[in-house]
Write a protein that binds this DNA or RNA. Structure first.
Length: 726
DNA sequence: CCTAGTAACATTTTT
DNA sequence: TGTTACTAGG
């Protein structure tokens, strides 16, 4: 629990035997199979410290690859606490960030232009749409993108695809798909752009064609750690192999039971075959779980044991018993959300609570009910700040300024704000560009020769040139301000719907830029890189007060909402895992193949094992999908749970008409807010849903409360969660 | 060229 | 249900 990393003198004493063994591992390959909550990160961090201290390895020779940038940040922080200044020289990063960093230096060796940009999936879609239209193909860009991702993520490239793929993919002929792929790549390169997958592929290409560069990088990565190894894909596998080289001091850490990124072509065999791939590898198993109560853990073990494609492994709890895991059945999704909100209101300690769900769409109802109950909440992941229209617009100016070849960005903002350059004009210019094989912006420059009324276009080109110049001279914050000024963007959105929100978002963008500048002090181009790689740079809007470098880190008193995927690697004292239903968990698209189904079960397992003290599972018997009511059935995974491990709570449906609890699971709830029990009348109270009100009458277990704006409500004291106010 | 209205579509998960 | 993509009329 106590996470003050031990002082330098006792790197080992706070660890168990298995952890110590892993920490002491020195040279050669090692696989650390680390179950959920077994102190995986801790072990890696200590191991790195041990390398530095005991083996006198130079920090500049250590690389640690994490799954997300956030994880990288956390690891760096912990290392900082532990090894001090040396942490600065450690290389801690995701595969993608590492690759980008390398390509920023050596990109030209593999044909990249200096100012190349990283396209996000939105940009990818735009580009794909264009290509599909060009080729006259009817296919969904999303589906095609999945195909391209597959081609790129499985190595083997296009030839393998043409050999192995079925006749039709994504609704089009295999050959056509291949054509799309080629066009897509060509177009990316012409625009000086790469997509996510390219980052890794190009790094591989670089290393394979230029051993001297590989060699250089290897010097910087003599000791390599790869976290979440179960979620690496073939490309990452290859990259790891290349970096590890002939004499691999490679330690991979992971848990096959938590492999949940198959859809991103992660290959669980990477971890299962590690000892074959790296002969002589030592294997360390961390099977003691420090995180969860045994009630939670035995549930988790029971669930995951049902997977057939799996190596036996059982996590042993260190913690004792704990409250029983609660299961709540709701008549519909709305009630489910209401239950969660009420229960959370009752529990208090919002900062310790997380609500996890399978699909992002589920968050809406939950948010709504939390808001009504006045429970502060934070949505993680979801619609990213940097995906909002106004933010993307302004960033498109920045990208264009940094890389004038970027025609996706160009097209995004030619007429935003509207400046009289309409669709037909743009079409004409692009046509010209294509015919002459010149970049879009070049065609715009030649507007006079192409258009009868080229003034606006001329002015636009001038603007772009101006900004391009500014991009070299100013930092990100100042540059973005300049864009806003030069385009009068704020006036433009002033009378749009949600103008306030959107203006606020622009302010946040500027603030994010300033913060970033203050912390890292880089160029505009580097700022754009950061954004491209970090799906959610800390949601800027949410930081309450940014004072020092995170003091003892008090978690904001907010409930956390996120998808199960996002929850990987995290833990919370109290977890609500909602929507445990057929077609949702397991998801309807994963019912046909055993591998997919088992991945869903692992997802469930990941959710369960996030909980430290208390876990609630819930499902609804009815749920709206696209506004259409659908009746649902409880997840088959629930059937895997032995009798007695779950306690069904069935409190209060809507006010009174619910059934009594079978076992009142939350009877032993930790630290509730001061809930009022006895009323005389006249008390001021607060209801999670109706807000503040006055008690009008009290009789038996029931009170009648007047809520301004709502009216009179008769409530069961026991269940209403009334809080007594002054 | 621009806007407002309607039709179509979408939801699995993300570096 | 909520968003985005197209269309017709200004």
């Amino acid at each position: 629990m106590v996470d003050f990393e031990s002082s330098m003198s006792d790197l080992l004493s706070s660890l168990n035997e298995a952890q110590q063994a892993a920490v002491k591992h020195f040279e050669g390959p090692a696989l650390v199979v680390a179950g959920a909550g077994s102190g995986k990160t801790r072990t890696v961090v200590h191991r790195i410290a041990y390398l530095l201290r005991e083996h006198r390895v130079y920090a500049g020779e250590i690389l640690a690859v994490t799954f997300t940038n956030k994880a990288a940040g956390e690891m760096k922080e912990r290392l900082g606490k532990m090894v001090g200044r040396a942490a600065h020289d450690l290389w801690v990063s995701t595969f993608h960030s590492a690759a980008l960093r390398i390509l920023r230096v050596y990109g030209e060796w593999v044909g990249l232009k200096p100012g190349f940009v990283v396209y996000d999936d939105d940009d990818q879609n735009t580009l794909l749409k264009e290509i599909l239209k060009d080729l006259g193909l009817e296919a969904k860009p999303g589906a095609v993108r999945a195909v391209l991702d597959r081609i790129k993520n499985r190595l083997g490239g296009i030839s393998e695809f043409l050999r192995d793929a079925p006749d039709y993919v994504a609704g089009i002929l295999r050959e056509d798909a291949a054509l799309v792929y080629q066009r897509y790549q060509q177009s990316l390169r012409a625009q000086g752009a790469v997509d996510f997958n390219d980052l890794l592929l190009l790094a591989i290409e670089l290393f394979e064609n230029h051993p001297e560069i590989l060699h250089k990088v290897q010097q910087r990565a003599r000791f390599i750690h790869v976290d979440e190894y179960q979620d690496t894909n073939p490309v990452q596998y290859r990259l790891t192999r290349l970096l590890a080289g002939e004499n691999p001091n490679l330690m991979v850490v992971g848990d096959p039971d938590q492999s949940i990124y198959g859809f991103r072509n992660a290959d669980i065999n990477n971890i299962l075959d590690f000892t074959k791939d790296y002969p002589g590898a030592k294997v360390y198993r961390l099977e003691e779980n420090y995180r969860s109560t045994s009630a939670i853990l035995s549930l988790a073990n029971a669930v995951i044991a049902k997977n057939a494609l799996r190596l036996e492994k059982t996590l042993r709890p260190v913690k004792g018993g704990g409250d029983p895991v609660c299961l709540f059945r709701a008549p519909n999704a709305r009630e489910e959300a209401a239950f969660v909100a009420r229960e959370i209101a009752r529990l208090g300690n919002f900062g310790q609570i997380a609500i996890l769900y399978r699909t992002n769409a589920q968050s809406r109802l939950l948010e709504e009910h939390l808001r009504r109950a006045q429970i502060p909440a934070r949505l993680v992941g979801a619609v990213g700040f940097f995906e909002r229209r106004e933010v993307k617009d302004i960033l498109a100016y920045a990208r264009l300024a940094v890389n004038p070849l970027d025609s996706i960005s160009l097209r995004r903002i030619v007429n935003v704000p509207t400046r009289g350059i309409g669709a037909s004009t743009v079409a004409k210019l692009l046509e010209h560009a294509q015919q002459h094989g010149i970049p879009a912006l070049e065609a715009f420059r030649q507007a006079e020769a192409i258009l009868s009324r080229p003034q606006q276009v001329g002015a636009f080109v001038e603007l772009v040139d101006e900004l391009a110049e500014a991009a070299f001279e100013t930092g990100p914050a100042e540059f973005l301000e300049r864009v806003l000024d030069a385009t009068d963007y704020k006036t433009f959105i002033k009378d749009e719907p949600d103008a306030e929100d959107r203006l606020a978002n622009l302010e946040e963008l500027l603030r994010a830029a300033r913060d970033w500048e203050a912390e890292f002090g880089g160029t505009l181009a580097e700022f754009l890189d950061t954004i491209a790689l970090t799906a959610s740079i800390e949601e800027p809007a949410k930081r309450v007060q940014d004072g020092k470098l995170e003091a003892p880190r008090e978690k904001a008193e907010e409930v956390t909402l996120m998808t199960l995927h996002n929850a990987k690697g995290l833990e919370f004292p109290i977890v609500f895992l909602v929507g445990v239903e057929e077609n949702l968990l397991p998801h309807r698209n994963s019912l046909n193949r055993l591998e997919d189904l088992e991945e869903e079960r692992r997802l469930f397992y990941v959710g369960i094992t996030r909980a430290q003290e208390r876990l609630y599972l819930s499902y609804a018997e009815e749920r709206e999908i696209y506004g259409k009511r659908e009746s649902t059935r409880p997840s088959r995974f629930l059937e895997d749970i032995p009798e007695g491990m779950l306690t069904e709570v069935n409190p209060f449906g809507e006010f009174g008409r619910g059934v009594r609890p079978v076992t009142v699971g939350w009877a032993a709830a930790p630290s509730r807010p001061k809930l009022a029990e006895n009323f005389k009348g006249g008390e001021k109270v607060k209801h999670p849903r109706f807000g503040n009100g006055t008690v009008v009458a009290a009789l038996g277990g029931e009170v009648t409360v007047h809520f301004p704006g709502v009216g009179l409500k008769k409530l069961a004291v026991k269940f209403a969660g009334l809080e007594l106010l002054e």
